[in-house]
Design a protein around this nucleic acid. Structure first.
Lengths: 161, 161
DNA sequence: CTCATTGCAAATAATTTGCATGTAA
DNA sequence: TTACATGCAAATTATTTGCAATGAG
């Protein structure tokens, strides 16, 4: 029911990953399966430590190096994208090849809101073409203050007294 | 002669910095002056180490911690913006409050091309308004393959033979 | 004189890597 | 059996911080 228009489904991602691994002669292990599973279950800007915690609920012996290595694998295979927002952490999300969503980030409360805007996509194509680039991916992040934090900033009457 | 339409000039940036420092009771030192000078001389996505190298040409005794601290200061004062592209380095650029330029990055040769597109700006405002956000800044990066690298990829005839 | 600033080196934090052992294929 | 994969701990890399000495106001 989350039905986004053109997004790739889990099955296709599994296929991508499988064929990538086959091509490179990589092996399927229970650790990798757990990690990929956990990632698919929580595909939005997860950090390594979040993922590790989740994965360890299933198999507490999994080491963090394996999570790092597997996420890098997912990124190489095109299934995941690496993201660095302001904090020092690398986060990963589903590559989501078509339904390009972008981010609106509150600089006060750090909330992350996603949005989609096809017209921005169109402009990107145009800009890329102008410079002769073939686009692989993009990041579009807007940093600002969310409605809640604006309200908080306006009504600090109690504190000011 | 680089005359971009609405960009803030150096003088204004110096003013911003000065009033920020005055407000916070911070002091002006020769190290800070050197660093700020070096930054203004090379304001596009410079890394700390690049800046440090340049600053040490003038005063070789300046420590790298000071560069880190000063750049953070510039960011807080609104004069500089922090940027993290793919590599592990934090880069800084002039905040450039109005002439919002964005980046087109070649994933092969790492070249960074800047572009400006007012229509993207307009759409951003619209999106922000839709979510009730007040925008402070934004990042818009497109990753792809530049014309040169496309050419290189197409003509490896010698290699393929 | 007072307190911010500096340089250095040590401390953190995130990520990567070497290696002996485990394990898909 | 033959590599690839894993877990651990040690290594790296980028950045931050404690502190005694220095210097601005």
């Amino acid at each position: 029911m989350t039905g986004s228009t053109t997004s790739i489904d889990r099955e296709q991602f599994r296929q991508m990953l499988e064929s990538f691994m086959a091509k490179k002669g990589l092996r399927s292990t229970k650790q990798r399966e757990h990690i990929v599973e956990a990632f698919f279950a929580q595909p939005d800007h997860v950090s390594i430590e979040e993922l590790l915690a989740r994965v360890r609920e299933r198999d507490s012996s999994i080491g963090y190096a394996t999570v790092y290595r597997t996420l890098k694998l997912l990124a190489e295979s095109g299934v995941a994208n690496e993201r660095k927002f302001g904090d020092g952490l690398t986060r990963y999300e589903l590559a989501d090849g078509d339904a390009h969503h972008d981010h609106l980030i509150c600089v006060e409360c750090k909330r992350i809101v996603e949005f989609e805007e096809p017209r921005v996509e169109a402009l990107q194509e145009e800009i890329a073409a102008r410079h002769g680039f073939v686009i692989r991916s993009h990041k579009h992040e807007m940093y600002g203050v969310c409605p809640e934090c604006q309200a908080k900033a306006k009504a600090p009457a109690a504190k000011m007294a």
